[in-house]
Amino acid sequence: MAEPLHPELENPRRRDFIHVATGAFVATGAAMVVYPFIQQMNPSADVLAMATVEVDLSKLQPGQGMKVKWQGKPVLIRYRTPAEISDAIKADTADLRDPEKDAARVKAEHPNFLIAVGVCTHLGCVPLGAASGETRGEYGGFYCPCHGSVYDTSGRIRKGPAPKNLEVPKYAFKSPTVVEIG
């Protein structure tokens, strides 16, 4: 290609191309440097490796509950009695703040086990009601001592300031008495 007679009159100029190409190269390089420095703040491999926890439920008797630690958070497990299950199903039709059916919150094959994250949806305290001797609130489920939120036997918010039901984590039964949370 012949040299243009007046390169300064070209539009766009060659120099514009060089500027844009350099800028794009620098921006790409900067992004590639910044990425690992942001990613290092995310959970590391050893934290992610603890993402699931297996729980043995064989020691639990009907009516009893337990707390386990999963990803640093308490998980409340309740072996519900037939009466508690029917209470929960009856309440499906009640005027709930966060409407959800009991069947949607437990596994169909294991309706006797309620597994919910023990973090009050109000401001994050651990509700009472899983360990023996703890108060369970007027609906027989869980009671948060911080600001008086009351949850029923399905872990649904019934009274108090909390806006949502207790979160149900992802879990699966490995055997009739062993559950993997996460």
Binding site: P36, F37, Q39, Q40, N42, S44, A45, D46, V47
Partner: peptide, 10 residues
């Protein structure tokens, strides 16, 4: 070196 994201690089 092993677990932290890009820890080896940093």
């Amino acid at each position: 070196m092993r677990d932290v994201n890009y820890g080896w690089l940093i």
